[in-house]
């Protein structure tokens, strides 16, 4: 972990305790997760108890304490997506990748997450891989969507 970048983030927020949520968000942006080592470092530098930092890192859904895969799949489970068959899509992704929601594949290629709502309800059901949106997804389309990322990474 490059702690210089963490230091820069801490400075950006003036080492303020009240900015801890923003700090953790920015730091998570560096490695895509928060390692215990990083959290301990932040705790020391901010002179803020590790308990409080862990409280926040586990309370808010945006934070991950385990490493994530190269590609993040976000399956939207908002109401409009749910009615459109989001559960069937999620089942299908889980079946293809052999992971459950919140897990990462053994080859660290994909992490599967669910989100409450992406605000793209008019396009339901939606899944997002990294920053690419797929609208009107059905279980039959999933294999094709995911294989594009696999082949791209193998190149």
């Amino acid at each position: 972990m490059d702690f210089q970048e963490v230091d820069r983030t801490l400075e950006k927020y003036d080492h303020k305790h009240s900015a801890i949520i923003s700090i953790l968000q920015d730091v998570q942006g560096i490695e895509n997760y928060l390692s215990e080592e990083t959290l301990r470092y932040i705790s020391e530098r901010l002179e803020l108890s590790l308990t409080r930092i862990f409280d926040i890192a586990t309370f808010y859904k945006a934070f991950s304490l385990v490493p994530r895969g190269r590609h993040t799949i976000k399956a939207c489970c908002g109401t409009a997506c749910h009615l459109g068959g989001a559960v069937r899509n999620l089942d299908q992704i889980e079946r293809i990748l052999h992971v459950k929601e919140g897990e990462t594949t053994d080859d660290r290629m994909f992490s599967l997450e669910t989100v409450n709502c992406l605000g793209a309800c008019a396009l339901a059901p939606v899944i997002v891989v990294d920053d690419d949106y797929y609208d009107g997804v059905t279980p039959g389309k999933i294999e094709k969507i995911l294989s594009a990322y696999r082949t791209e990474s193998e190149r």
Binding site: K16, H17, S18, A19, I20, I21, S22, L24, Q25, R52, D55, I56, F59, Y60, K61, A62, F63, V115, N116
Partner: peptide, 23 residues
């Protein structure tokens, strides 16, 4: 201030506590 994925933070007292940097 950016929320960090907690629905309950839409509730006003929870939102304020979140701005203060707590869960």
């Amino acid at each position: 201030d950016r929320g960090a994925g907690a629905f309950v933070c839409g509730e006003e007292t929870a939102l304020m506590i979140s701005i203060e940097g707590r869960s």
